[in-house]
């Protein structure tokens, strides 16, 4: 508990640093390519097109129904996939954030817990741009901004919380045991298929309900549903499914407590693991 408060305090006290460092982060990553930061947007766009081609065009996925409305598969996919890209990139880069930067941070009084957060933040800018583009596309496709859009801010915040809580754990563990990072990459690959990014869970109707419940235990699924409801739906998802909301925040809290405890316990010795 004490370490959790300490980590939170560091986040707030050094928020300026998080913002500045995250900008350098994107800059240094895209310094070598001619199109620069455009790649941050191009990459996920190309991926969406590929998945749309495979699942939508080749396998002929039917439109998905949300709150009684039919949503074309491509738009449905897009709404989930931008969240997925943010989640995937943040977790992957967050996990290796500490051990790849430790040498550079030659000072101990640098608050280590902001390393994963500024890496996540650099992804967050990209996410905001992607969201902006998607919203514009949805306007042309006929899914207009309405009052339920307000929920989106809540889900964006929740997504940042989830990625930070997970990254706090994985960045500590993968600094100590490098294999964790490799394992994580494999697990994430699987997550893409079971988090409801590429296909709606409604096609599981004929299977025993227990499978659906297990899939819903994944906190990312809560966010997926939330994003899509905000774009296309007509309900206040976080209130109508308040048990699920409660479950989500309990999971975040537990993950964060574990992460903060691990981080504070081992951070003094990170350099010994290099």
């Amino acid at each position: 508990m004490k370490s959790a408060i300490q980590v939170l305090k560091e986040q707030f006290n050094h928020f300026y640093l998080v913002r500045r460092l995250s900008l350098y982060e994107i800059k240094s990553k895209n310094k070598n390519n001619y199109l620069g930061m455009l790649w941050e947007v191009l990459n996920p766009s190309i991926q969406i097109l590929i998945y749309w081609f495979v699942f939508g065009a080749l396998l002929g996925r039917a439109p998905v129904e949300i709150d009684g409305k039919e949503i074309s598969f491509i738009y449905w996919l897009m709404a989930g996939f931008i969240l997925w890209t943010f989640f995937f990139q943040s977790i992957i880069h967050g996990s290796k954030s500490i051990y790849t930067r430790l040498r550079m941070l030659s000072k101990m009084n640098f608050p280590m817990s902001i390393i994963p957060s500024y890496v996540i933040f650099s992804q967050f800018y990209v996410h905001l741009v992607m969201l902006g583009i998607s919203i514009i596309v949805f306007q042309f496709a006929g899914y207009y901004i309405n009052v339920y859009f307000v929920q989106l801010f809540y889900y964006i915040f929740a997504a940042v919380c989830l990625t930070f809580a997970i990254s706090l754990i994985t960045s500590t563990l993968s600094t100590m045991i490098r294999d964790v990072h490799l394992l994580l990459a494999s697990v994430l690959r699987m997550m893409l298929y079971v988090s409801g990014v590429l296909w709606p869970l409604s096609i599981l109707k004929e299977y025993p309900p227990i499978i659906l419940t297990i899939i819903k235990l994944n906190p990312l699924y809560y966010l997926m549903e939330g994003y899509r409801i905000s774009f296309f739906g007509s309900e206040w998802y976080l209130i109508t499914h308040w048990q699920y909301t409660l479950y989500f925040w309990v999971v975040i809290l537990v993950l964060f407590l574990i992460g903060a405890t691990l981080h504070v316990k081992f951070r003094r010795h990170f350099i010994d693991y290099l």
Partner: peptide, 29 residues
């Protein structure tokens, strides 16, 4: 402050950006 041969500079960034980055991390505004 420790000065060593491997001063911990970021290769992709320019000298100027490295200066800014390093000073940021040292807590300068």
């Amino acid at each position: 402050s420790l000065i060593a041969v491997s001063a911990g500079l970021k290769n992709e960034l320019s000298g100027r950006e490295n200066i800014e980055l390093k000073l940021l991390m040292l807590g300068f505004n």
